[in-house]
Simulated assay, not measured.
Amino acid sequence: MVCQLRRDREKALRIQSILDAAKKVFTSKGYLKATMDEIALAAEVTKPTIYLYFKAKDDLFFTLMLPLVDDIRQQLLKVENNLLTGKIGNGTSLITAIFNAFYHAYEILPSTFRIMQLFQQQGLMGELRPEVRSALNDQGRTNFIICRKLLTRGMEMGYIKKVNVYEMADVIWGSLVGIIQLEDAKFYDRKTKRLTENTLRLAERLIAEAMTIKTEER
């Protein structure tokens, strides 16, 4: 029993070490140029050891993305609960809450978020095996379904103006991703968290002001 627990703990630590190494290599080299040899070297394990746990490079990428995608989903579900229970009572609060749900993932997993940004920017989904690409798309699609559901509910409750929810969800997500990417590119060698957050909050306020139906207009 004790031996099994120790083996399980060692396995978990080894897997985490490999994932940390993959994150480091993906960040420095990009997904396309990263190799399993480099990841093995960074993790201080042999390449066959990596293949004990991950079939290919895209499995590593998928496993790294899961916590990011899952955090966004959990945050959006909290927004949904707050909306349904009356804790969110106007359009400004709703747009802010959705914005925060996306931003939270960047706050807790900034490196993973940037890997995802670069991956999307370079249009690398085609580099993933079909089954991995499908699984990742399903995860992301679920989050956008929840986001669009929140926007639809906000419109039905008279909190926000009626627009195309597919486009509105893309505006919110695209604003967040674009601003983070822009600030990172402009100030890659300096700490930009405060500036990035201030810019994001401005975008959030502008979108909320444009979308919110004021009480007297309902």
Rank of each mutant, 00 (worst) to 15 (best):
R6V: 12
D8N: 10
R9E: 14
A12L: 13
I18F: 00
D20W: 08
D20G: 10
A22K: 11
K24W: 00
F26H: 07
S28N: 14
G30K: 05
E38M: 08
A42F: 01
A43T: 01
F54I: 06
K55M: 08
A56P: 00
K57P: 03
D59S: 10
F62A: 15
F62P: 05
L66T: 06
L68T: 02
D71E: 14
D71S: 14
I72E: 04
L76S: 00
L77C: 00
V79R: 03
L84D: 12
L84M: 14
T85V: 06
G89S: 09
I95E: 02
I98G: 03
F99H: 14
F102V: 02
Y106F: 15
I108T: 15
R114L: 12
R114K: 14
I115M: 07
M116H: 12
Q121E: 12
Q122H: 07
M125H: 05
R129V: 01
E131S: 12
E131G: 01
V132Q: 13
N137S: 08
D138I: 04
G140K: 04
N143L: 03
F144M: 13
T152V: 09
R153E: 14
M155I: 15
E156I: 06
M157H: 03
G158A: 13
A169I: 07
D170P: 01
D170M: 13
G178Y: 01
I179E: 08
I179V: 09
I180Y: 01
I180E: 02
Q181N: 13
Q181G: 08
D184M: 09
D184V: 03
T192F: 04
T192M: 10
T199K: 04
L206K: 06
I207G: 01
A208V: 05
A208D: 04
E209K: 09
M211K: 02
T212L: 07
I213T: 10
I213V: 14
E217W: 02
R218P: 02
